[in-house]
Design a protein around this nucleic acid. Sequence first.
DNA 1: ATCAAAATCACCCGAAAGTATGAGCCCAAA
DNA 2: TTTGGGCTCATACTTTCGGGTGATTTTGAT
Lengths: 162, 162
Amino acid sequence: MGKLFSKNKLIILYGASLAGILLLLKWLEFRFVIMDHSFEVYIGAIALIFTGLGIWLALKLTKPRIETIIVEKEVIVIKPAKDTSAENFGPDEGALLKMGISKRECEVLALMSEGLSNQEIADRLFVSLNTVKTHSSNLFEKLEVKRRTQAVEKGKRLGLLL
Amino acid sequence: MGKLFSKNKLIILYGASLAGILLLLKWLEFRFVIMDHSFEVYIGAIALIFTGLGIWLALKLTKPRIETIIVEKEVIVIKPAKDTSAENFGPDEGALLKMGISKRECEVLALMSEGLSNQEIADRLFVSLNTVKTHSSNLFEKLEVKRRTQAVEKGKRLGLLL
DNA sequence: ATCAAAATCACCCGAAAGTATGAGCCCAAA
DNA sequence: TTTGGGCTCATACTTTCGGGTGATTTTGAT
């Protein structure tokens, strides 16, 4: 029930909006058309409203188009010349695969390590809060930790994070 | 002049389109409304057309909505001669004092960075949970952060943690 | 084409984290 | 001695986390 709603949420919402607006217009009909004969105003209003609706729809419906353009930002790190061998090239792919950590989970972990909340991560990745929770839960299980702070800690130790 | 046109090209185009469509509708008016009295159909058509127009507009105008995942690439700079003295022996006292962070708060921060929960920190320091909460709250304020994960992040950047 | 894994999202619920406020204790500096 | 800062703790409240479950959709590989 709730699922079915959430799935077609946009469509239903759009339908409802349309119906509501049409009702409103129907009511206005007797004020504008009959009263003033200002048919053009009426039409103009409709046009504007539905143009806005279309824009809104497009923005909502359009897939976030995650083209993941990677902007490389150089950060100068002062290292005491010790264990530089393993940690130089970002996440350690081997370790990643060994733990069975997926791409998305890794992204979540990375954002976690920046101290973002689940909600902020969700916004950043254009997914819902629940999705982030799922990812993080799986992540914790795979990393065998209980908290996000531990996950970050372990992630850094394992070279999953840069 | 040409610049001004090219800048507002889309807007002008939109205006033109709108005018054109309104003209078209004006013409159609005498076919639909008068002929059939199918006002609703007329309105529906307008709604659909302008919804489509809105969608088109949005898709044209909106930037390709690129999610820029910022991947920070570390550039290792080895400076063994200078600041090894500061980082090897625990927290940077100067930074500590500058932020007005007390001893206890620092201990809490250190345990936080190990991924311990507030309760665990409380047990470790032989104080109550509430005390740890108070310390961490004060800490967050002084570090200007909102969450423990951010506190750890910032703490490491500032050299408050080793 | 189909099967499995990954990704997405929802809902519920309890636990942990964090906020706000107030208060008592101790100690050192004014 | 009083005053302020650090430390301790409490209560009450809101928000965020995390676990558990179940579901659908996308995608990749066979």
